[in-house]
Design a protein around this nucleic acid. Structure first.
Lengths: 144, 144
DNA sequence: GTTGAAAAAACAGAGGA
DNA sequence: TCCTCTGTTTTTTCAAC
């Protein structure tokens, strides 16, 4: 992991579909060398995947919320949540609640339906997302 | 947005670096047609970008937390947070707190330093992430 | 939406600092 | 070890339909 690897990670985080040839020009290194470095970053598990980012709103999902949940039966709860299409992220957390999850639904009504379905497993506190100043900032500082 | 578009989005969410030629084989449609559909999905803002997913742990960031924050000066707070490399996501939320942010740091000590720096802007409650059963589940159901 | 040719990129091997 | 160079294969682009 040197400065060149960090630059590659930064570029990949900005645009994962950038051709390797273009990256090789940007960082002034031959294409096979860049390819090999990317392969190693993947093998080491530093790069875990490449994903298209989708707009929830453009797909008709206009409501995002974070739900903190307290349950006594983690196993059943996780099974239930894994099967719930509304939940995009699930975190086990410290504190009064067991779990925090990010929920994306069409509207507040469908969020309410989801929360109703959850209530069999415990109790929750819901934080509605009003705006997202930024999301998914890079873990790599992009100075060279 | 028909079933083929949904399939493209699903494939792109699984692996954004999949060659379009491979996608065209998977969904049995000519490559220029797939390319044109992707271009339209980008133009419509349904696809907002392509990102490499990086492992925080493999980059030496072993602590993830969600911090709920209450501030009286949103403008200054957001400026401060935007300049903080530790914060990867920032959400404006409803409820007792103004903001929820996802914070990724090297360890609990560096998290404490960050929270100390924040304390000038208001008060917070921190939820430490103990485990992540899943993250970034697709908004598109991947049945065809 | 398809086909097919030209351009570009990715891959794989040989060899050098 | 890590890189560059180079020839081959694959993918992308762009024309015409």
């Amino acid at each position: 992991m040197d400065q060149i690897d960090r630059k590659i990670l930064s570029l990949m985080h900005e645009n994962a579909r950038m051709p390797i040839s273009e990256m090789s020009r940007t960082i002034s290194m031959s294409q096979p060398a860049v390819t090999e470095r990317i392969r190693k970053l993947e093998d080491q598990g530093i790069i875990t995947g490449y994903r298209a980012q989708l707009s929830g709103a453009k797909l008709g999902k206009h409501t995002t919320a974070f739900v903190m949940f307290k349950t006594d039966n983690c196993k059943d709860f996780v099974s239930f949540i894994e099967a719930s299409a509304e939940v995009v992220d699930l975190y086990r957390i410290s504190g009064e609640y067991n779990y925090l999850m990010k929920v994306v639904t069409e509207n507040t009504e469908s969020l309410a339906s989801f929360l109703d379905a959850c209530s069999a497993h415990g109790f929750s506190t819901t934080l509605i997302v009003l705006a997202t100043p930024f999301e998914d900032k890079s873990l790599i500082s992009n100075e060279v």
